[in-house]
Amino acid sequence: MAGWDVVAHPARVRAATGLAGQYSTVDGMLTGVENLSLVARLRGMDRRAARRTAGELLDRFRLADSGGRLVNTYSGGMRRRLDLAASLVASPPLIILDEPTTGLDPESRLDTWDAVGELAAGGTTVLLTTQYLEEADRLADRITVIDHGRVVAAGTSDTLKSAAGSRLVIVVAEDHEVPAAVRAAAACGGPPVVDRRSRRVETAVTGGQAALARALSVLADEGVEALEVGLGRATLDDVFLALTSRRDPAVTR
Rank of each mutant, 00 (worst) to 15 (best):
A85F: 09
V178I: 13
A234V: 03
W4Y: 15
A213F: 03
L127C: 10
V251E: 14
R197N: 12
A211R: 02
I95T: 04
L119S: 08
D237T: 00
G55N: 05
E107M: 06
A49R: 10
A120G: 04
M45S: 08
L227F: 12
D59M: 04
V239D: 10
A40T: 03
T124K: 10
R199V: 05
R196C: 08
V172F: 13
L70T: 03
T101S: 14
N72P: 00
A8W: 10
R253N: 02
G155S: 05
G123P: 08
G123D: 11
S198H: 06
A211Q: 04
A90C: 05
E118T: 04
G207C: 03
T73D: 11
G3M: 01
A90K: 01
L104T: 10
A153R: 13
T252Q: 07
L58I: 00
A85M: 04
T206P: 02
H176S: 12
L227T: 14
R52K: 13
G207S: 10
T17N: 06
A85L: 05
A20M: 13
G44W: 12
D59T: 03
L236V: 11
A242T: 10
G28P: 02
G232K: 03
D147G: 01
G44F: 13
V152I: 09
S198W: 06
R51G: 01
R81K: 15
L82P: 01
A180D: 11
G55M: 06
T244Q: 08
T73K: 11
L82G: 02
A187I: 03
A250Y: 15
V182H: 06
T73V: 11
V218H: 13
T31S: 14
P179D: 12
F61I: 02
G223F: 15
L88C: 11
D221V: 08
E56Y: 09
D195K: 02
R43A: 13
R12T: 07
A85D: 05
A8Y: 11
L168C: 06
D158F: 09
L19W: 15
T101C: 09
A226F: 13
S162H: 14
D5Y: 10
D46F: 04
L139N: 03
A121G: 06
A16Y: 06
G18V: 09
I96R: 02
T206K: 08
S75M: 12
E228L: 12
L36I: 00
L70W: 06
V13A: 00
L84K: 04
L36S: 00
L19V: 15
Y23N: 12
L168P: 00
R51M: 03
L241N: 01
H176A: 13
L82A: 00
R62G: 07
L36G: 01
P93V: 02
D221F: 09
A50Q: 08
D83T: 03
L104F: 10
A16V: 03
T156D: 14
S245N: 13
R109I: 00
V251R: 15
G208Q: 05
G208C: 02
T124V: 15
R183Y: 06
A250L: 10
A226Y: 11
R43N: 11
A250E: 15
T25A: 14
E107K: 13
E118N: 07
I96W: 11
L94N: 09
A50R: 01
V39H: 02
V205I: 08
E56M: 07
V171D: 07
L119C: 09
A90H: 15
V152R: 09
